[in-house]
């Protein structure tokens, strides 16, 4: 395990753990952006520069902002005094810890655990674009259709119905 990986892992885990543990929802999203940046840095360390920058643009730039807007739009004065955790938080934590224990046990037994990285692949944005336009063109088109349908659906769902009735 290298020092750079340890630093990135600690930053990522601390950010995401704070995002799931803090009481104030806005603080949670701020901690979450730290975790997302850490994940993007891990992609960069794995020589996937395009995915790392996509992660920063989509998650840090769009999803986190969207979550902050949603928190502000649903903020009601009474929700501050309510407890942050649900009534069955103990069972949920035990389930999550059990899932991690099983996954870590399986990973540590696997022969892939000690596998070392092969030679650094030569991945450029041009090669990714070529692959998207030739071999993966059908998934790309379906993804465009899905994004269009999802955005129209999101607008229709979030639309205020009272405006329609007038």
């Amino acid at each position: 395990m290298t020092v750079s990986f340890l630093i990135l892992a600690v930053v990522t885990v601390a950010g995401t753990a704070a995002a799931m543990g803090l009481r104030n929802a806005v603080h949670c999203v701020l901690a979450l952006t730290v975790g997302f940046v850490g994940i993007a840095a891990i992609y960069l360390q794995l020589d996937a520069q395009f995915v790392g920058l996509t992660q920063i643009m989509v998650y840090v730039g769009a999803v986190a902002i969207l979550a902050v807007f949603a928190i502000m739009m649903t903020h009601s004065p009474t929700s501050v005094q309510l407890p942050a955790y649900s009534s069955f938080w103990l069972a949920g934590s035990v389930v999550a810890a059990a899932v991690f224990a099983v996954l870590a046990w399986a990973i540590s037994l696997s022969p892939a655990y000690t596998r070392q990285a092969p030679q650094e692949p030569d991945v450029t944005a041009q090669k990714i674009g070529d692959a998207l336009m030739h071999r993966f063109v059908l998934p790309l088109e379906i993804m465009g259709l899905l994004l269009t349908a999802a955005l129209i659906g999101a607008v229709v769902i979030a639309m205020d119905r009272k405006e329609e009735m007038k």
Partner: peptide, 21 residues
């Protein structure tokens, strides 16, 4: 570079944190 298992352990830890949340 770190072995593959360290990345897998990190991702399973992130998965468990997300599941707990």
């Amino acid at each position: 570079m770190s072995p593959l298992g360290s990345y897998l352990l990190l991702s399973s830890l992130l998965f468990s944190i997300g599941l707990a949340g």
